[in-house]
Design a protein around this nucleic acid. Structure first.
Lengths: 262, 262
DNA sequence: CGTAGTGTTGAATTGAATCAAGTGTCGTGG
DNA sequence: CCACGACACTTGATTCAATTCAACACTACG
């Protein structure tokens, strides 16, 4: 998923000083010295609709942490809420564990997407979030984001939009879980991933799943076995090609029809 | 559900002039002349944490529309997004209809709760919302709310919190739908209603359901028949008492255990 | 190279949906 | 004010989609 490795993981000292005037065309997504202005994700995450000086101000509050290894936690359920996070590279899942230990995945996060908004209201994160692979993030201390939003109407507007988008997305999942069959859920999930990959300029028809079948099942309210069976069935119908974590969507139109038929 | 009827439904002229210095102790929840400062719901909806002058400013942008009859629409799917709404009295449901005509309820709204945040990002409402009974609302034009939030940090903070709360709530429903049984979902739904009624000083153990079994089923991803059967089963177990729309929770602890056992 | 985690496939089971038939309730108009 | 019709709700019998249980294959990593 990531185009390069992270060679400069611990290079913390130079990050704030990154120049803004001339985007330095850094392409390494793990590189902690990439500023918001030069980040190729900046249309997705917060800086959209901000001008140069505004981006610079945002840039100053963003903390570019060292990369996370697979399985590392960004935060855990009930931790005090402090920041929201923008995925810079890699991917994350968030999940809750019930008292009896049954886990349930509540979301997957790809580059450019914002993590942690569930903690804003209660001041404690409602779920745990961990890296699915070697990943890096931008940490945005929330009280500073609020303060800055107050100065920059564009930023306030954009963050309202991001939260509104999250709400709309969650409600779509509500519909999906309350009325779709296993096949419809799975098709919808694959199409959703596809368009999210497209947003970060990755192929929408051929990609690697960062999560296990078990994760997908927990997310969609299905068992591992069912997810596996549906994948095989879709493959037999010629709609997709599956090899382990590698997915190719062979007939997107037909996948859409599965859902449309609902 | 409402303590009084609305006798002054069309009294639009006097509403802005409502005095703020001396809360006029209007108790009729449909009464359009009740200002934010004197509204008994103001801890739930937007004004919490605002001072007198701030509430006054908010008050000026709020439009107190005439009451809605049962079945009236607040807005419809794909309508241009203009406002969010605070329920003043009564109740609403929002729902989406798929291409094939199958409807799915995405939410219920009780007094003090905010409707319409799903439209913020896309500028179009993602679902339709209609009154479940004779109800009244406060309409808050969103672009004015944004402008005012920019002047009042407390308001900005509170609206971020309201949206964050919605996100956290939606994720709980995700978990519910993806792993709870019909009985667990129903118990959880009843307990949720119970605490929401408690917030507006109504009895948490004895209340009227504003929605049909069908609505509940669509919301919980179950059929009418299943909801009905579960109600009967819970009643036989002595956990609740059902008479039509009238519900009494006889053993809240046991209801909690149904979910806890998950 | 071995082992834990991940994935596949089959057979049996089951929780909820569907199909079906009925009763109860409410609002409307005569 | 009552009768009618539409809708809301209940209950039972049957079906079915997805889970559970089980056994095994693959892979990837220390």
């Amino acid at each position: 998923m990531n185009t390069t490795d992270s060679k400069e993981e611990e290079n913390e000292s130079s990050r704030i000083e990154a120049k803004l005037e001339e985007p330095p065309v850094k392409i390494c997504p793990h590189n902690p010295s990439v500023s918001c202005a030069s980040c190729r994700l900046n249309e997705l995450c917060l800086p959209i609709a901000l001008n140069k000086s505004e981006i610079h101000q945002l840039d100053e509050i963003v903390e570019r942490n060292r990369p996370y290894k697979k399985g590392d936690h960004l935060y855990r359920q009930n931790d005090g809420f402090k920041s929201v996070y923008a995925v810079r590279s890699g991917s994350f899942k968030s999940y809750v564990v019930s008292d009896s230990g049954v886990g349930r995945v509540t979301g997957f996060f790809l580059p450019g997407e914002i993590i942690g908004m569930d903690g804003i209201a209660s001041k404690h994160y409602a779920n745990s979030t961990q890296a699915l692979e070697h990943s890096s993030i931008c940490e945005i201390p929330f009280f500073q984001l609020e303060k800055l939003s107050h100065q920059l109407p564009n930023l306030q507007h954009h963050f309202f939009a991001i939260m509104g988008n999250e709400i709309a997305k969650d409600q779509q999942i509500h519909t999906l879980l309350s009325s779709y069959t296993a096949e419809e859920r799975t098709a919808s999930f694959l199409l959703g991933l596809s368009s999210r990959f497209a947003q970060v300029s990755l192929s929408p028809v051929r990609f690697l799943l960062p999560m296990t079948r078990g994760d997908i099942g927990e997310y969609l309210g299905l068992t591992v076995e069912t997810v596996s069976r549906i994948f095989t069935a879709l493959q037999r119908k010629g709609l997709i090609e599956v090899n382990n974590r590698e997915i190719e969507l062979l007939d997107i139109e037909a996948l859409r029809n599965i859902i449309g038929a609902n």
